[in-house]
Design a protein around this nucleic acid. Sequence first.
DNA 1: CGTGGCATTGATGTGGCTCAACGATAGTGG
DNA 2: CCACTATCGTTGAGCCACATCAATGCCACG
Lengths: 232, 232
Amino acid sequence: MSIACDTCVVRNRAICSVLDTDELVALNRIGRTRTISAGQTLMWEGEDSALVANVLDGVLKLSTGTEDGREQIVGIVYPADFIGRPFGARAQQTVTALTEARVCVFARGDFDAFAREHPALEHKLLQRTLTELDRARHWMLLLGRKSAMEKMASFLLEMSERLVQNGCTPDAGPLDRFALPFGRQQIADILGLTIETVSRLLTKLKNDGVIDLPSRREVTILQRDILRHRAG
Amino acid sequence: MSIACDTCVVRNRAICSVLDTDELVALNRIGRTRTISAGQTLMWEGEDSALVANVLDGVLKLSTGTEDGREQIVGIVYPADFIGRPFGARAQQTVTALTEARVCVFARGDFDAFAREHPALEHKLLQRTLTELDRARHWMLLLGRKSAMEKMASFLLEMSERLVQNGCTPDAGPLDRFALPFGRQQIADILGLTIETVSRLLTKLKNDGVIDLPSRREVTILQRDILRHRAG
DNA sequence: CGTGGCATTGATGTGGCTCAACGATAGTGG
DNA sequence: CCACTATCGTTGAGCCACATCAATGCCACG
Protein backbone atom coordinates (compact mmCIF):
# COMPACT_ATOMS: atom_id res chain seq x y z
CA MET A 1 0.00 0.00 0.00
CA SER A 2 1.36 3.39 -0.87
CA ILE A 3 0.99 6.57 1.11
CA ALA A 4 -2.44 7.94 0.39
CA CYS A 5 -1.94 10.81 2.79
CA ASP A 6 0.15 13.03 0.56
CA THR A 7 -2.75 13.38 -1.81
CA CYS A 8 -5.31 13.54 0.98
CA VAL A 9 -7.88 16.31 0.58
CA VAL A 10 -7.89 17.07 4.30
CA ARG A 11 -4.13 16.69 4.77
CA ASN A 12 -3.76 20.28 5.94
CA ARG A 13 -6.88 20.55 8.02
CA ALA A 14 -7.35 17.22 9.83
CA ILE A 15 -5.45 16.39 13.00
CA CYS A 16 -2.83 14.79 10.76
CA SER A 17 -1.67 18.28 9.79
CA VAL A 18 0.74 18.32 12.72
CA LEU A 19 2.58 15.21 11.56
CA ASP A 20 5.66 15.19 9.35
CA THR A 21 6.07 12.86 6.40
CA ASP A 22 7.63 10.00 8.36
CA GLU A 23 5.01 10.09 11.04
CA LEU A 24 2.34 10.17 8.38
CA VAL A 25 3.74 7.03 6.85
CA ALA A 26 3.52 5.32 10.21
CA LEU A 27 -0.02 6.50 10.83
CA ASN A 28 -1.07 5.52 7.37
CA ARG A 29 0.18 1.98 8.01
CA ILE A 30 -2.37 1.45 10.79
CA GLY A 31 -5.32 3.06 8.99
CA ARG A 32 -7.34 2.41 5.91
CA THR A 33 -9.93 4.37 4.01
CA ARG A 34 -13.47 3.22 3.88
CA THR A 35 -16.54 4.38 2.01
CA ILE A 36 -19.88 4.59 3.77
CA SER A 37 -23.11 4.98 1.88
CA ALA A 38 -25.76 7.47 2.97
CA GLY A 39 -27.82 6.17 5.86
CA GLN A 40 -25.28 3.56 6.92
CA THR A 41 -24.10 3.50 10.52
CA LEU A 42 -20.40 3.42 11.37
CA MET A 43 -20.71 2.83 15.11
CA TRP A 44 -23.48 2.37 17.64
CA GLU A 45 -24.10 4.09 20.94
CA GLY A 46 -23.22 1.83 23.87
CA GLU A 47 -21.27 -0.59 21.72
CA ASP A 48 -17.63 -0.84 22.64
CA SER A 49 -15.53 1.71 20.92
CA ALA A 50 -13.52 -0.23 18.34
CA LEU A 51 -12.87 2.48 15.78
CA VAL A 52 -11.82 6.07 15.42
CA ALA A 53 -11.66 7.92 12.13
CA ASN A 54 -10.96 11.07 10.20
CA VAL A 55 -13.60 12.26 7.78
CA LEU A 56 -12.27 12.74 4.27
CA ASP A 57 -15.48 13.54 2.52
CA GLY A 58 -19.21 13.68 3.22
CA VAL A 59 -21.30 14.57 6.25
CA LEU A 60 -22.19 12.35 9.21
CA LYS A 61 -24.34 12.77 12.28
CA LEU A 62 -23.74 11.86 15.92
CA SER A 63 -26.89 10.91 17.77
CA THR A 64 -28.22 9.51 21.00
CA GLY A 65 -31.68 8.26 21.75
CA THR A 66 -34.01 7.20 24.51
CA GLU A 67 -35.17 3.62 24.87
CA ASP A 68 -38.57 4.47 23.47
CA GLY A 69 -37.12 5.70 20.21
CA ARG A 70 -36.83 9.46 20.57
CA GLU A 71 -33.66 10.69 18.93
CA GLN A 72 -31.45 13.72 19.43
CA ILE A 73 -28.68 14.63 17.03
CA VAL A 74 -25.77 15.88 19.15
CA GLY A 75 -23.23 16.69 16.49
CA ILE A 76 -22.62 17.04 12.78
CA VAL A 77 -19.32 15.90 11.39
CA TYR A 78 -17.71 17.40 8.30
CA PRO A 79 -14.57 16.67 6.27
CA ALA A 80 -11.38 16.97 8.34
CA ASP A 81 -13.29 16.32 11.56
CA PHE A 82 -12.41 13.49 13.88
CA ILE A 83 -14.83 10.71 14.87
CA GLY A 84 -14.86 8.34 17.81
CA ARG A 85 -13.81 8.04 21.39
CA PRO A 86 -10.10 7.47 21.86
CA PHE A 87 -8.94 6.28 25.30
CA GLY A 88 -12.40 5.09 26.23
CA ALA A 89 -14.08 1.76 26.06
CA ARG A 90 -17.55 2.74 24.91
CA ALA A 91 -18.88 4.79 22.05
CA GLN A 92 -21.36 7.24 23.53
CA GLN A 93 -23.02 8.19 20.28
CA THR A 94 -24.23 6.52 17.15
CA VAL A 95 -22.39 7.72 14.04
CA THR A 96 -24.37 7.60 10.80
CA ALA A 97 -23.57 8.91 7.33
CA LEU A 98 -25.99 11.51 6.02
CA THR A 99 -24.41 11.59 2.59
CA GLU A 100 -22.09 9.10 0.98
CA ALA A 101 -18.90 9.52 2.96
CA ARG A 102 -15.24 8.53 2.89
CA VAL A 103 -13.43 8.11 6.17
CA CYS A 104 -9.93 7.14 7.19
CA VAL A 105 -10.43 4.56 9.96
CA PHE A 106 -8.14 3.21 12.66
CA ALA A 107 -8.54 0.46 15.19
CA ARG A 108 -8.95 2.39 18.42
CA GLY A 109 -6.17 0.56 20.22
CA ASP A 110 -3.70 1.24 17.41
CA PHE A 111 -4.65 4.88 17.28
CA ASP A 112 -4.43 5.28 21.06
CA ALA A 113 -0.93 3.85 21.07
CA PHE A 114 0.14 6.04 18.18
CA ALA A 115 -1.33 9.16 19.76
CA ARG A 116 0.42 8.55 23.07
CA GLU A 117 3.71 8.52 21.24
CA HIS A 118 2.96 11.72 19.36
CA PRO A 119 2.18 14.55 21.75
CA ALA A 120 1.69 17.00 18.89
CA LEU A 121 -1.17 14.84 17.63
CA GLU A 122 -2.72 14.68 21.07
CA HIS A 123 -2.37 18.42 21.38
CA LYS A 124 -4.23 18.96 18.13
CA LEU A 125 -6.89 16.50 19.21
CA LEU A 126 -7.19 18.31 22.52
CA GLN A 127 -7.73 21.62 20.76
CA ARG A 128 -10.42 20.11 18.56
CA THR A 129 -12.13 18.47 21.49
CA LEU A 130 -12.15 21.72 23.45
CA THR A 131 -13.72 23.48 20.48
CA GLU A 132 -16.32 20.75 20.10
CA LEU A 133 -17.12 21.00 23.80
CA ASP A 134 -17.68 24.73 23.47
CA ARG A 135 -19.89 24.12 20.48
CA ALA A 136 -21.91 21.45 22.27
CA ARG A 137 -22.43 23.68 25.29
CA HIS A 138 -23.50 26.54 23.10
CA TRP A 139 -26.04 24.22 21.47
CA MET A 140 -27.39 23.40 24.93
CA LEU A 141 -28.53 27.01 25.22
CA LEU A 142 -30.45 26.59 21.98
CA LEU A 143 -32.07 23.33 23.08
CA GLY A 144 -32.93 24.45 26.57
CA ARG A 145 -33.93 28.05 26.18
CA LYS A 146 -34.82 29.03 22.63
CA SER A 147 -38.23 29.04 20.95
CA ALA A 148 -38.87 26.97 17.85
CA MET A 149 -38.40 29.96 15.54
CA GLU A 150 -35.21 30.99 17.29
CA LYS A 151 -33.91 27.44 16.92
CA MET A 152 -34.71 27.35 13.22
CA ALA A 153 -33.14 30.73 12.50
CA SER A 154 -30.01 29.86 14.51
CA PHE A 155 -29.76 26.58 12.64
CA LEU A 156 -29.95 28.17 9.21
CA LEU A 157 -27.33 30.74 10.15
CA GLU A 158 -24.97 28.11 11.52
CA MET A 159 -25.40 25.99 8.41
CA SER A 160 -24.64 28.91 6.13
CA GLU A 161 -21.40 29.36 8.05
CA ARG A 162 -20.28 25.77 8.39
CA LEU A 163 -21.04 24.66 4.87
CA VAL A 164 -18.50 27.16 3.51
CA GLN A 165 -16.62 24.30 2.04
CA ASN A 166 -13.06 25.15 2.04
CA GLY A 167 -13.20 25.14 -1.70
CA CYS A 168 -9.95 26.73 -2.58
CA THR A 169 -11.84 29.99 -2.64
CA PRO A 170 -10.22 32.24 -0.08
CA ASP A 171 -12.61 32.66 2.79
CA ALA A 172 -15.82 33.56 1.05
CA GLY A 173 -17.74 34.29 4.25
CA PRO A 174 -21.14 32.76 4.98
CA LEU A 175 -23.07 31.33 2.06
CA ASP A 176 -26.39 32.78 1.04
CA ARG A 177 -27.36 29.69 -0.89
CA PHE A 178 -26.60 26.14 0.13
CA ALA A 179 -27.85 22.57 0.04
CA LEU A 180 -28.68 21.00 3.38
CA PRO A 181 -27.41 17.47 3.88
CA PHE A 182 -30.55 16.83 5.96
CA GLY A 183 -34.15 15.88 5.48
CA ARG A 184 -36.86 17.56 7.54
CA GLN A 185 -36.90 14.81 10.17
CA GLN A 186 -33.21 15.24 10.77
CA ILE A 187 -33.53 18.98 11.16
CA ALA A 188 -36.18 18.21 13.75
CA ASP A 189 -33.81 15.80 15.49
CA ILE A 190 -31.12 18.46 15.60
CA LEU A 191 -33.37 21.16 17.00
CA GLY A 192 -35.44 19.05 19.38
CA LEU A 193 -38.66 19.73 17.45
CA THR A 194 -41.14 17.74 15.37
CA ILE A 195 -41.06 17.47 11.61
CA GLU A 196 -44.35 19.34 11.29
CA THR A 197 -43.05 22.30 13.28
CA VAL A 198 -39.92 22.40 11.16
CA SER A 199 -41.98 22.42 8.00
CA ARG A 200 -44.25 25.17 9.24
CA LEU A 201 -41.35 27.35 10.34
CA LEU A 202 -39.60 27.02 7.00
CA THR A 203 -42.70 27.93 5.03
CA LYS A 204 -43.32 30.84 7.36
CA LEU A 205 -39.79 32.15 6.80
CA LYS A 206 -40.32 31.68 3.08
CA ASN A 207 -43.68 33.48 3.10
CA ASP A 208 -42.13 36.30 5.08
CA GLY A 209 -39.50 36.66 2.36
CA VAL A 210 -36.63 35.94 4.74
CA ILE A 211 -35.48 32.82 2.90
CA ASP A 212 -36.30 30.96 -0.29
CA LEU A 213 -36.60 27.22 -0.75
CA PRO A 214 -35.67 26.44 -4.36
CA SER A 215 -35.95 22.72 -3.74
CA ARG A 216 -36.47 20.34 -0.85
CA ARG A 217 -32.89 20.47 0.30
CA GLU A 218 -31.81 23.90 -0.84
CA VAL A 219 -32.05 27.12 1.09
CA THR A 220 -31.37 30.68 0.04
CA ILE A 221 -31.01 33.33 2.69
CA LEU A 222 -32.60 36.51 1.37
CA GLN A 223 -32.50 38.71 4.47
CA ARG A 224 -29.71 37.62 6.74
CA ASP A 225 -30.19 40.50 9.18
CA ILE A 226 -33.82 39.62 9.77
CA LEU A 227 -32.88 35.96 10.17
CA ARG A 228 -30.30 36.96 12.76
CA HIS A 229 -32.92 38.98 14.52
CA ARG A 230 -35.22 35.98 14.68
CA ALA A 231 -32.42 33.81 16.07
CA GLY A 232 -32.90 35.50 19.46
CA MET B 1 6.01 30.03 48.94
CA SER B 2 6.15 26.37 49.81
CA ILE B 3 4.64 23.51 47.89
CA ALA B 4 0.99 23.42 48.75
CA CYS B 5 0.38 20.56 46.34
CA ASP B 6 1.67 17.76 48.51
CA THR B 7 -1.11 18.37 50.97
CA CYS B 8 -3.67 19.12 48.26
CA VAL B 9 -6.99 17.38 48.74
CA VAL B 10 -7.36 16.70 45.04
CA ARG B 11 -3.72 15.79 44.45
CA ASN B 12 -4.62 12.31 43.29
CA ARG B 13 -7.71 13.12 41.29
CA ALA B 14 -7.07 16.41 39.49
CA ILE B 15 -5.08 16.56 36.29
CA CYS B 16 -2.01 17.17 38.44
CA SER B 17 -2.07 13.51 39.39
CA VAL B 18 0.09 12.65 36.39
CA LEU B 19 2.91 14.95 37.46
CA ASP B 20 5.87 13.92 39.57
CA THR B 21 7.16 15.97 42.50
CA ASP B 22 9.55 18.13 40.49
CA GLU B 23 6.94 18.95 37.89
CA LEU B 24 4.48 19.76 40.62
CA VAL B 25 6.91 22.24 42.12
CA ALA B 26 7.19 23.93 38.75
CA LEU B 27 3.44 24.02 38.24
CA ASN B 28 2.91 25.28 41.73
CA ARG B 29 5.24 28.17 41.02
CA ILE B 30 2.94 29.56 38.33
CA GLY B 31 -0.31 29.03 40.23
CA ARG B 32 -1.91 30.33 43.34
CA THR B 33 -4.96 29.36 45.33
CA ARG B 34 -7.90 31.63 45.55
CA THR B 35 -11.14 31.58 47.50
CA ILE B 36 -14.39 32.50 45.83
CA SER B 37 -17.51 33.22 47.80
CA ALA B 38 -20.88 31.78 46.80
CA GLY B 39 -22.44 33.72 43.96
CA GLN B 40 -19.21 35.33 42.83
CA THR B 41 -18.18 35.01 39.19
CA LEU B 42 -14.68 33.85 38.24
CA MET B 43 -14.89 34.52 34.50
CA TRP B 44 -17.41 35.89 32.05
CA GLU B 45 -18.67 34.51 28.77
CA GLY B 46 -17.14 36.35 25.81
CA GLU B 47 -14.43 37.97 27.89
CA ASP B 48 -10.96 36.96 26.88
CA SER B 49 -9.79 33.84 28.54
CA ALA B 50 -7.18 34.97 31.06
CA LEU B 51 -7.42 32.18 33.62
CA VAL B 52 -7.64 28.46 33.97
CA ALA B 53 -8.02 26.65 37.27
CA ASN B 54 -8.38 23.44 39.20
CA VAL B 55 -11.20 23.19 41.69
CA LEU B 56 -10.02 22.25 45.16
CA ASP B 57 -13.26 22.59 47.01
CA GLY B 58 -16.82 23.72 46.38
CA VAL B 59 -19.18 23.60 43.42
CA LEU B 60 -19.34 26.01 40.48
CA LYS B 61 -21.58 26.39 37.47
CA LEU B 62 -20.81 27.05 33.81
CA SER B 63 -23.50 29.02 32.04
CA THR B 64 -24.37 30.80 28.84
CA GLY B 65 -27.21 33.17 28.17
CA THR B 66 -29.13 34.96 25.47
CA GLU B 67 -29.02 38.73 25.12
CA ASP B 68 -32.46 39.08 26.63
CA GLY B 69 -31.42 37.39 29.85
CA ARG B 70 -32.43 33.78 29.50
CA GLU B 71 -29.81 31.53 31.06
CA GLN B 72 -28.78 27.94 30.49
CA ILE B 73 -26.43 26.13 32.85
CA VAL B 74 -24.17 23.99 30.65
CA GLY B 75 -21.99 22.34 33.24
CA ILE B 76 -21.43 21.78 36.93
CA VAL B 77 -17.91 21.72 38.24
CA TYR B 78 -16.83 19.74 41.30
CA PRO B 79 -13.58 19.37 43.24
CA ALA B 80 -10.72 18.02 41.09
CA ASP B 81 -12.39 19.28 37.91
CA PHE B 82 -10.67 21.66 35.55
CA ILE B 83 -12.02 25.10 34.61
CA GLY B 84 -11.33 27.36 31.69
CA ARG B 85 -10.35 27.30 28.07
CA PRO B 86 -6.67 26.58 27.49
CA PHE B 87 -5.29 27.33 24.01
CA GLY B 88 -8.17 29.61 23.17
CA ALA B 89 -8.59 33.31 23.37
CA ARG B 90 -12.16 33.57 24.58
CA ALA B 91 -14.02 32.09 27.50
CA GLN B 92 -17.24 30.64 26.12
CA GLN B 93 -19.03 30.29 29.42
CA THR B 94 -19.50 32.25 32.58
CA VAL B 95 -18.09 30.49 35.64
CA THR B 96 -19.82 31.24 38.94
CA ALA B 97 -19.40 29.72 42.39
CA LEU B 98 -22.53 28.07 43.79
CA THR B 99 -20.97 27.46 47.16
CA GLU B 100 -17.92 29.00 48.69
CA ALA B 101 -15.10 27.53 46.64
CA ARG B 102 -11.35 27.24 46.60
CA VAL B 103 -9.58 27.03 43.28
CA CYS B 104 -6.00 26.77 42.15
CA VAL B 105 -5.68 29.37 39.39
CA PHE B 106 -3.12 29.88 36.62
CA ALA B 107 -2.64 32.62 34.09
CA ARG B 108 -3.79 30.96 30.88
CA GLY B 109 -0.59 31.74 29.00
CA ASP B 110 1.57 30.25 31.74
CA PHE B 111 -0.55 27.15 31.92
CA ASP B 112 -0.58 26.70 28.14
CA ALA B 113 3.19 26.88 28.01
CA PHE B 114 3.55 24.44 30.89
CA ALA B 115 1.08 22.02 29.37
CA ARG B 116 2.82 22.03 26.00
CA GLU B 117 5.98 20.92 27.75
CA HIS B 118 4.26 18.16 29.66
CA PRO B 119 2.48 15.76 27.31
CA ALA B 120 1.26 13.61 30.18
CA LEU B 121 -0.66 16.59 31.52
CA GLU B 122 -2.16 17.28 28.13
CA HIS B 123 -3.11 13.66 27.83
CA LYS B 124 -4.93 13.76 31.13
CA LEU B 125 -6.64 16.98 30.10
CA LEU B 126 -7.65 15.39 26.81
CA GLN B 127 -9.23 12.46 28.59
CA ARG B 128 -11.18 14.77 30.85
CA THR B 129 -12.31 16.92 27.97
CA LEU B 130 -13.48 13.88 26.03
CA THR B 131 -15.48 12.74 29.04
CA GLU B 132 -16.99 16.20 29.46
CA LEU B 133 -17.93 16.25 25.80
CA ASP B 134 -19.72 12.92 26.16
CA ARG B 135 -21.51 14.23 29.20
CA ALA B 136 -22.54 17.45 27.46
CA ARG B 137 -23.87 15.54 24.46
CA HIS B 138 -25.79 13.20 26.68
CA TRP B 139 -27.33 16.23 28.35
CA MET B 140 -28.43 17.49 24.93
CA LEU B 141 -30.75 14.49 24.70
CA LEU B 142 -32.30 15.51 27.98
CA LEU B 143 -32.74 19.13 26.92
CA GLY B 144 -34.05 18.39 23.45
CA ARG B 145 -36.21 15.36 23.89
CA LYS B 146 -37.25 14.72 27.46
CA SER B 147 -40.42 15.84 29.23
CA ALA B 148 -40.22 18.00 32.34
CA MET B 149 -40.73 15.01 34.66
CA GLU B 150 -38.12 12.97 32.82
CA LYS B 151 -35.69 15.87 33.13
CA MET B 152 -36.32 16.19 36.85
CA ALA B 153 -35.96 12.48 37.54
CA SER B 154 -32.77 12.25 35.44
CA PHE B 155 -31.38 15.24 37.29
CA LEU B 156 -32.00 13.78 40.73
CA LEU B 157 -30.45 10.48 39.73
CA GLU B 158 -27.37 12.17 38.29
CA MET B 159 -26.97 14.29 41.41
CA SER B 160 -27.19 11.27 43.67
CA GLU B 161 -24.34 9.75 41.68
CA ARG B 162 -22.08 12.77 41.27
CA LEU B 163 -22.29 14.01 44.82
CA VAL B 164 -20.71 10.82 46.13
CA GLN B 165 -17.90 12.89 47.44
CA ASN B 166 -14.88 10.88 47.45
CA GLY B 167 -14.94 10.89 51.17
CA CYS B 168 -12.37 8.29 51.94
CA THR B 169 -15.25 5.86 52.07
CA PRO B 170 -14.55 3.22 49.46
CA ASP B 171 -17.05 3.66 46.67
CA ALA B 172 -20.30 3.85 48.51
CA GLY B 173 -22.47 3.86 45.39
CA PRO B 174 -25.16 6.46 44.75
CA LEU B 175 -26.41 8.43 47.71
CA ASP B 176 -30.01 8.18 48.82
CA ARG B 177 -29.82 11.40 50.77
CA PHE B 178 -27.93 14.50 49.72
CA ALA B 179 -27.88 18.27 49.82
CA LEU B 180 -28.23 20.04 46.51
CA PRO B 181 -25.85 22.93 45.96
CA PHE B 182 -28.64 24.60 43.96
CA GLY B 183 -31.68 26.70 44.53
CA ARG B 184 -34.87 26.09 42.53
CA GLN B 185 -34.03 28.70 39.91
CA GLN B 186 -30.72 27.04 39.22
CA ILE B 187 -32.30 23.64 38.85
CA ALA B 188 -34.62 25.28 36.32
CA ASP B 189 -31.61 26.76 34.50
CA ILE B 190 -29.97 23.34 34.33
CA LEU B 191 -33.04 21.57 32.99
CA GLY B 192 -34.33 24.26 30.68
CA LEU B 193 -37.54 24.72 32.69
CA THR B 194 -39.13 27.43 34.82
CA ILE B 195 -38.90 27.66 38.57
CA GLU B 196 -42.62 26.99 38.93
CA THR B 197 -42.45 23.77 36.97
CA VAL B 198 -39.47 22.61 39.03
CA SER B 199 -41.35 23.29 42.22
CA ARG B 200 -44.46 21.46 41.04
CA LEU B 201 -42.48 18.43 39.89
CA LEU B 202 -40.64 18.14 43.19
CA THR B 203 -43.81 18.33 45.24
CA LYS B 204 -45.44 15.80 42.94
CA LEU B 205 -42.56 13.38 43.42
CA LYS B 206 -42.80 13.97 47.14
CA ASN B 207 -46.58 13.43 47.23
CA ASP B 208 -46.11 10.24 45.22
CA GLY B 209 -43.67 9.00 47.85
CA VAL B 210 -40.81 8.71 45.40
CA ILE B 211 -38.64 11.25 47.20
CA ASP B 212 -38.68 13.25 50.40
CA LEU B 213 -37.67 16.88 50.88
CA PRO B 214 -36.42 17.26 54.45
CA SER B 215 -35.43 20.87 53.83
CA ARG B 216 -35.15 23.30 50.95
CA ARG B 217 -31.89 21.96 49.69
CA GLU B 218 -32.02 18.35 50.81
CA VAL B 219 -33.39 15.42 48.91
CA THR B 220 -33.95 11.83 49.96
CA ILE B 221 -34.57 9.25 47.30
CA LEU B 222 -37.11 6.79 48.66
CA GLN B 223 -37.85 4.72 45.58
CA ARG B 224 -34.91 4.80 43.21
CA ASP B 225 -36.41 2.28 40.80
CA ILE B 226 -39.54 4.34 40.30
CA LEU B 227 -37.43 7.46 39.88
CA ARG B 228 -35.40 5.66 37.22
CA HIS B 229 -38.61 4.67 35.52
CA ARG B 230 -39.77 8.27 35.42
CA ALA B 231 -36.41 9.36 33.96
CA GLY B 232 -37.58 7.97 30.58
C1' DC C 1 -49.04 5.15 -14.37
C1' DG C 2 -48.89 3.53 -9.98
C1' DT C 3 -46.30 3.23 -5.52
C1' DG C 4 -43.70 4.60 -1.58
C1' DG C 5 -41.20 7.85 0.78
C1' DC C 6 -40.89 12.66 2.05
C1' DA C 7 -43.10 17.17 2.86
C1' DT C 8 -46.90 20.25 3.67
C1' DT C 9 -51.12 21.70 5.71
C1' DG C 10 -55.05 21.66 8.87
C1' DA C 11 -57.63 20.55 13.19
C1' DT C 12 -57.25 19.60 17.83
C1' DG C 13 -55.03 18.74 22.34
C1' DT C 14 -51.95 19.60 26.15
C1' DG C 15 -47.60 20.28 28.72
C1' DG C 16 -45.32 23.67 30.49
C1' DC C 17 -45.09 28.83 30.55
C1' DT C 18 -46.96 33.21 32.34
C1' DC C 19 -48.95 36.00 35.59
C1' DA C 20 -50.35 36.61 40.19
C1' DA C 21 -50.87 35.74 44.98
C1' DC C 22 -49.46 33.61 49.03
C1' DG C 23 -46.34 30.98 52.43
C1' DA C 24 -41.94 29.72 54.49
C1' DT C 25 -37.37 30.69 55.97
C1' DA C 26 -33.23 33.05 57.19
C1' DG C 27 -31.02 36.99 58.34
C1' DT C 28 -31.17 41.74 60.75
C1' DG C 29 -31.61 45.06 63.97
C1' DG C 30 -34.15 46.74 67.81
C1' DC D 1 -36.03 37.11 71.73
C1' DC D 2 -39.05 38.72 68.54
C1' DA D 3 -40.83 41.66 64.88
C1' DC D 4 -39.35 43.08 60.25
C1' DT D 5 -37.91 42.34 55.82
C1' DA D 6 -35.85 40.23 51.83
C1' DT D 7 -35.43 36.18 49.49
C1' DC D 8 -36.90 31.97 48.07
C1' DG D 9 -40.34 28.57 47.27
C1' DT D 10 -45.18 27.00 46.59
C1' DT D 11 -49.67 27.05 44.60
C1' DG D 12 -53.42 28.32 41.43
C1' DA D 13 -55.74 29.95 37.04
C1' DG D 14 -55.42 30.69 32.34
C1' DC D 15 -53.22 30.58 28.01
C1' DC D 16 -50.23 29.63 24.19
C1' DA D 17 -46.58 27.33 21.63
C1' DC D 18 -45.69 23.27 20.11
C1' DA D 19 -47.01 18.32 19.87
C1' DT D 20 -50.21 15.09 18.07
C1' DC D 21 -53.30 13.13 14.92
C1' DA D 22 -54.95 12.96 10.31
C1' DA D 23 -55.27 14.13 5.37
C1' DT D 24 -53.44 15.58 1.33
C1' DG D 25 -49.71 16.92 -1.97
C1' DC D 26 -45.36 16.19 -4.33
C1' DC D 27 -41.81 13.82 -6.64
C1' DA D 28 -38.69 10.13 -7.92
C1' DC D 29 -38.65 5.58 -8.62
C1' DG D 30 -39.92 1.19 -10.97
